[in-house]
Simulated assay, not measured.
Amino acid sequence: MYSLIAGVASLGTAMAEPRWEMLPETPELPAAGREGEAPVNGIKIWHAVYGSGEPVLMLHGGLGNSNYWGNQISTLAGSYQVIVMDSRGHGRSTRDDRPYSYDLMATDVVALMDFLKLPKAVIVGWSDGAIIGLKLAIDHPERVSRVFAFAANSKPSGLHNLNDSVLFKTYVDRTREEYEKLSPTPRGYDDFHEEMKQMWNAQPDLAEEALGNIHVPVWVVDGDHEEVVRREDTLFLSDSIPGSGLLIQPEVSHFSLLQDPEQFTDHILHFLGRE
């Protein structure tokens, strides 16, 4: 297994509190070259497209929305065609009455790629988005060129008890406010959150055999202060995926993309340049 451990950041930086305990503000998205709603898979998927070049499709975490990628897009769009999408029932996207599942959300990604006429794309995923990226590598490998999987878990037992995380509770409170501003069903957050918890309690099920059949380049990535995913589960993923890279980012948590956006973007760029 290819292994990469990020170096320790410089000591002596005075901070009021460790950045891995902070949840910086959700950034705004830059102005898109084009954006809209794609009528796919029986729903409407909101998406935006930036830049040109090799397609890089960025998938956000559960309860969140595409705005969370706002710190990464401009830099990446200087060299790549960057696509962000709100997952079904998240952000500005709609949903139908089918229960949430990673399999279903993976088919949404493929449907959006068909709509945008993208034969293949790099997947950059955070949390639920990383799980969806791995599902695509397993079930639709012809549509995926590589996967940057940040903070994925392989099974429900790979998660810590989220009731114990103050930072995750802060995130949930924030996503409620964002949902009310963005969603076409602004009063539906409680039902939405409850259904997502039901999915998290039962899914995913990324078995060793299925992970062993992944043959696209993958980096399994997480923060050294990850408070949501158990470290042993991250190592299980990296050990099970043939030839995968393992990257542990320093001084960040499950919300690394906000806590140290420059580091997170640099790691994506390094991944994209990997031969």
Rank of each mutant, 00 (worst) to 15 (best):
S87Y: 04
R174K: 14
E54D: 15
Y68E: 13
E28Q: 14
N65A: 13
I5R: 11
L257Q: 14
A152C: 06
F150V: 04
P242D: 12
R187V: 02
G133Y: 01
A106M: 10
H225W: 03
N201P: 02
G243P: 02
N65T: 13
L118S: 08
N65I: 01
Y2D: 15
Q72R: 06
P141W: 05
G243V: 07
L235Q: 04
K120G: 00
F148Q: 06
E232S: 12
F115E: 14
R176L: 10
G78E: 11
D86A: 08
W200C: 04
G125Q: 04
I132K: 09
P242G: 08
K169C: 00
R143N: 14
G212D: 03
L112A: 11
R19K: 15
L272N: 08
P55E: 02
L57V: 15
A77V: 10
E178R: 15
S154C: 03
M199K: 15
R34S: 12
A137C: 07
I241V: 14
S10T: 06
Q198K: 15
I132G: 01
P156F: 08
G125A: 06
L167C: 07
F150T: 00
H270L: 12
S101M: 06
Y171T: 03
Q198P: 00
M199G: 05
V172C: 03
M22I: 07
D239N: 14
E262M: 08
I268W: 00
L104D: 04
L159K: 13
E226C: 03
E35I: 02
Y80A: 10
Q259K: 11
V216K: 10
A121W: 00
R231L: 14
G158I: 13
N41S: 12
D108P: 04
A111P: 11
V144S: 07
P184E: 02
T234W: 06
G12P: 02
Y102H: 12
A152E: 12
Y171V: 04
I45Y: 01
A210H: 12
S74K: 15
F192R: 11
I5A: 03
L104P: 00
E54F: 01
S52D: 13
S3C: 08
M113R: 08
P250F: 00
E25C: 02
Y189C: 08
P261L: 03
Q259I: 04
V252A: 07
P18N: 09
K169G: 13
Y179D: 02
Y171A: 09
Y102D: 07
D224V: 02
D86Y: 01
I73Y: 03
Y100L: 10
V8D: 00
R143P: 10
D164K: 11
T175P: 00
E226T: 06
W219L: 11
I241L: 04
I248P: 01
G61M: 11
A210M: 10
W126T: 14
E37T: 14
T175N: 13
L206N: 10
N163D: 15
D239A: 14
A48L: 06
E262C: 04
T265Q: 01
R174M: 13
A77E: 02
D97H: 11
K135M: 13
E194K: 15
F168E: 06
S256F: 09
L116H: 03
S79N: 13
K44I: 01
L257C: 09
G243W: 01
D190M: 07
A151F: 07
L206M: 10
D164E: 15
V221H: 00
N153C: 09
G42Y: 05
T13Y: 02
E35F: 06
D224A: 05
M113F: 01
L211Q: 10
D139N: 15
G53N: 09
